[in-house]
Computed example of a mutant assay.
Amino acid sequence: MIRELTEAGDVVSASGDDFMTVWAAQGMGPGVRVFTSGEAIAVVSPGLSRRDRMLVTGPLDDAVPLVRHALAESGPSFRPLGEESLVRGLAERVGGLRLAGVFDWMDTGGPPPVDPGKASWLAEEESPEVAALLADANPGSYAAPGVPGVRRWAGVRTDAGALASVGADAWTAPGAGFIAGVATAVRERGRGHAESVCRFLLGTLLAEHGRVALIVDSWNHTAIGVYERLGMRRRSVAAAHTT
């Protein structure tokens, strides 16, 4: 039987406090719906990281009818997201679904990394500089100034005062900090600026939420190396979309 959960506490309990599920539920923010059947859970979350997403967990046999129901209830714009093996199975067994991409979810529950103190929060009036750096160094970033869900930016400046690297506290939920939009100016790469920004973000968000995650392309070994040095663990996840 398919049930709908309406309280954040019920989502935490039903999922066993699964990090990805709690993050996707966004504290049961506007438009979020959560369905469960058997051991599977589907979190329908509009505008999460700039997409209408459906975080799915649980056994494939339970997840298949649940995803069909959630898509019928919420519409075809919602993209199933979850462990790679599960999403591949859904793409094979749910009509109209197609695998869209595979990438890495990385997370940590601490302890926080030592912050050398080079990074700090940026002021709102520095947003044009952030946007310019992203346009040059990471034009595909989902996080950008002014995007809904992007709360604040951290950055490091060079001795000359130029913005060298940035990262955002974006789509964070109660009990689930999230980092996005990490980018370093091309001329400043290889000098540890991104690691400094990420140390600052991790330390702050761990103190506020107890655990922190981000999503990174599987081919980006340089970034993955930075995140692993900061104590983050990785697992392969995938997304699908309707055709």
Rank of each mutant, 00 (worst) to 15 (best):
I2N: 00
R3S: 05
E7S: 04
S13C: 06
A14K: 04
A14P: 01
A14Q: 09
A14Y: 03
S15Q: 11
G16Q: 14
D17I: 00
Q26P: 11
Q26C: 13
G27L: 08
G27H: 09
M28T: 08
M28G: 08
P30N: 15
A40M: 08
I41F: 05
P46E: 08
S49W: 10
R50Q: 15
R50I: 13
R51I: 02
M54R: 04
M54D: 07
P59C: 11
P59L: 12
L60T: 06
D61M: 10
L66Y: 14
H69D: 02
A70L: 12
S74I: 10
G75I: 08
P76G: 01
R79G: 07
E84Y: 05
G89S: 03
G89M: 02
L90P: 10
E92H: 06
G101I: 00
V102N: 02
F103S: 00
D104Y: 08
D104M: 03
D107L: 03
T108C: 08
G109P: 01
P113A: 04
P116R: 12
S120T: 09
A123Y: 08
A131I: 08
A132Q: 15
D136E: 14
P139L: 13
G140P: 00
Y142A: 07
Y142G: 02
V147A: 01
P148R: 13
G149C: 04
V150P: 09
G155V: 07
A162D: 15
G167W: 00
D169C: 07
D169F: 09
A173H: 01
F178D: 13
F178Y: 13
F178G: 06
A183D: 13
T184S: 10
T184K: 03
V186K: 03
R187Q: 15
R191G: 11
H193P: 09
A194N: 10
E195G: 15
V197F: 07
L201D: 11
L206E: 11
E208A: 09
H209A: 12
R211G: 02
I215N: 15
S218N: 05
A223C: 09
V226H: 05
V226S: 03
Y227Q: 10
L230C: 04
G231K: 08
V237N: 02
A239K: 13
